[in-house]
Write a protein that binds this DNA or RNA. Structure first.
Lengths: 243, 243
DNA sequence: CAATTTTCATTTGTCAGACAATTAAAAGTC
DNA sequence: GACTTTTAATTGTCTGACAAATGAAAATTG
């Protein structure tokens, strides 16, 4: 691991990159202990503060974890799906909000990805997934539910649909797409009528998944996607007239 | 922004979380300048080193950028797709390698997601996308190509297919899935015969996309997915016998 | 006055050294 | 042997200092 003194980047960024490469390439296996901060400082010929800043960068990406004490230190962290989820959601949320992605674009991406899961979910879903979907549908029908709670339940419903595919890689990829949409969905006011329609479509999806009919699930998802876009358009138009 | 002194987490982690929340919630708009390190240290009642460690964490997630000099400081960074891509690829690669995801699972996820893009790509692809696909197919047919170069070209081909959908959110989501597969694909030895078959299937996909026939593209992708899994199985079996 | 150069203040980047907090192993004690 | 104390190693935090970069203000020059 060497450092280029003529590079324009910070020393701590270079050191972080060097260690990151070692981890990503597999040269440092999971749970391997890194040299202590003092040793790293000596190896890279920098101060301990600089090493610490580099390590904090890696910790922010869940690449390492640190532990105090005699046998402590920095260890290569096994990246868990839960860690990856939360990073994915943060990143997706910022991408959507900072780059002014249109509701249509985000919606299209989300439903395209969900449709990819639907046939797999139809053939593999467990009773647990079905139960979750039914519970969320029931929750969505309860009166007095806020728009935010309705959207949160919607996310939970779709998570169950995606998880039903039994492919953790798909679940991970979809988590960002579905959850990052929630702030956008929260901007929509759901009337009693539109909720009724959405709940009916959810019911159709659940039925299709239960019947292990991938085609029907896909068709219901297409209908839901179209209705969501239509709903968003009418809500935004109404707002434009008012404002 | 306040800090809980009884929390188990590091001060720098708490400070990073507080600033991160402010950014993600939209309270701090893009390009807004954060207080200087000295001011932040005073506000949070910690030392400058601790503040710096917090800022490096945020920098690692591309949430802020820093600049030296009189008018310098830390600024809220507009998260660009390119930044998100690279993070996504790092994360996906580690997830696959560290959690021992099977080739079948990763492959299934990848092709399921790509199939979601195919119909959109068929209807929206530009001549540029088609040209890239053709160029990569030609490259794949050249003799003397290493397995790594063949896989890299394969990634480029599929990137063009995905980008053809004209949906940056989809491209972002897929980047991780496709590129993270490359190390797994690199483990496969491609014989002249299997390359020929893959190139033919790529040609079929390109033809379908050019003809704007989403159904044909989907069918070709399914065939490619099946062939890839089959190929991997035979390669791994041969290796098991040898070793 | 206009253009250029110099100075200066601000801010991040890096370093050195110190001490506190934590933790497990080693040593000591009953 | 079981329990307690000590100790060494390691990360977490603080302080103070200086270097490097950089734009703004001031001084200089034509």
């Amino acid at each position: 691991m060497k450092i280029d003194p003529t590079s324009s980047k910070d020393l701590s960024a270079q050191i972080a990159a060097a260690i990151r490469d070692a981890i990503v390439s597999g040269a440092m296996p999971v749970d391997e202990r890194l040299p202590s901060e003092a040793e790293l400082a000596e190896q890279f010929d920098v101060s301990r503060s600089t090493v610490r800043e580099a390590l904090k960068r890696l910790a922010a990406q869940s690449l390492i974890r640190t532990q105090r004490g005699a046998t402590g230190g920095a260890f290569v962290n096994r990246l868990r799906y839960a860690d990856a989820y939360s990073q994915q959601i943060t990143t997706s949320t910022l991408l959507l909000s900072m780059n002014a992605v249109s509701f249509e674009t985000a919606c299209e991406a989300r439903y395209a990805l969900e449709r990819a899961c639907a046939p797999l979910s139809a053939s593999r879903r467990t009773p647990d997934h079905l139960a979750t979907m039914r519970v969320e549908i029931h929750r969505q029908g309860q009166p007095g539910l806020t728009d935010e709670a309705f959207c949160a339940s919607d996310v939970a419903f779709h998570r169950a649909l995606v998880d039903g595919a039994g492919n953790p890689v798909l679940s991970y990829q979809l988590a960002g797409a579905v959850e990052a949409m929630q702030p956008l969905m929260n901007m929509i006011t759901f009337t009693a009528r539109s909720r009724e329609r959405i709940i009916a479509l959810h019911g159709g999806i659940a039925d299709a998944i239960e019947a292990q009919d991938g085609g029907a699930a896909d068709a219901a998802l297409v209908e839901l996607a179209e209705y969501t876009v239509e709903l968003a358009r009418s809500v935004f138009e109404a707002r434009a007239v008012k404002g």
